[in-house]
Simulated assay, not measured.
Amino acid sequence: MSGIFDALGEPVAQRVTGGLATIGQVLKSQAWKGAGPAGVTPTQAQALRVLRERPGTGLGALAGLLGVSAPTASTAVNTLVTKGLVVKEPGPDRRSITLRLTAAGEEVADRAAEWPAVLVRAVDALDPAEQTALLRSLVTLVRALQEAGEISPQRMCVTCRHFRPHVHADPRNPHHCAFVDEPFGDRHLRLDCAEQEEAAPEDRRAAWERFTSPDTAPR
């Protein structure tokens, strides 16, 4: 029988979304505070972080990774070029360009890559098991957004061709990374790995089904 809270309360998904929106506002506020002293906007700082991790990214790909329109990305890049933080280089064909950070851009990107201390402290307040559960939930959310086409492909473990979920009997380290040939656990899952190689769609689906079915016997 449903209680009063079931009758009057908002759906759990809606409350979780509201909590994420609140965290998003904190991140936005902290981004302005952190980017201001460096003389760049949050969007420009995010562009620097992306180019720091993915040198040689094209303008179109950068727009997708930032989740902004091509004109918005172009405006941000042109400003960074003017500031001497980014340089444009010829792309694979005559009509394309790639983007790289200058030495000054690397310094600003390093500062912009630092997560707001207030958020780090909040996550540190969780115990290790809660942090791992939160990380796994974030992986699930990001993958869902990627599969829905709402965000650009992310360099995550769970979509990588080197990911082997639940192949070891050790409950703390049940997964395997074929790239480094080592076992690992949920606490090691990465949302952005430089060595990630996107798996074929059917392989991604099979790996995800196995990842989300922890009772599957190791093989």
Rank of each mutant, 00 (worst) to 15 (best):
G36I: 00
A133L: 08
T132Q: 14
T98W: 01
C160A: 08
L80V: 06
D186S: 07
Q14P: 00
Q131N: 09
W115G: 04
Q46N: 15
L101S: 04
A7K: 06
T41K: 03
Q196L: 03
S69A: 12
E114H: 06
S29C: 00
V86P: 01
A35F: 03
T17N: 08
V50W: 03
A63M: 01
E114N: 05
L135F: 02
K28M: 04
R190E: 11
C193A: 12
L85A: 07
A178E: 14
P153A: 13
V108I: 11
P55K: 08
D186H: 11
E198Q: 15
G84C: 06
Q44S: 05
P42R: 06
A194H: 11
P214K: 07
V180R: 09
T43M: 14
A35D: 08
S137Y: 01
E130A: 15
A133C: 03
F5G: 08
D215C: 02
L65G: 03
P37A: 07
M156H: 05
T43A: 12
R210M: 04
L145M: 11
D186T: 07
R94T: 13
V180T: 08
F179Y: 07
V108K: 00
A194V: 13
V123C: 09
T57V: 14
E89Y: 03
E150P: 01
T57L: 13
M156T: 06
S137D: 09
T82H: 03
E130S: 15
T102D: 06
Q14R: 15
A169W: 00
R210L: 08
E209C: 04
E106S: 09
P174F: 05
A117R: 15
G3K: 07
A21P: 00
V16E: 11
W32E: 13
H166L: 12
V139Q: 15
R15G: 04
R210K: 13
A207F: 01
V86R: 01
T41I: 02
L135Y: 02
V86G: 01
V123A: 15
H162F: 13
D127F: 02
A125L: 14
L101R: 00
H175S: 04
V139R: 06
A122T: 11
E106Y: 01
A206T: 11
P128G: 10
G91E: 09
E114D: 07
H168F: 02
R111D: 10
V167G: 09
R136C: 05
V40Y: 02
Q14A: 15
A63G: 05
A178H: 02
M1N: 09
G36W: 07
R164D: 13
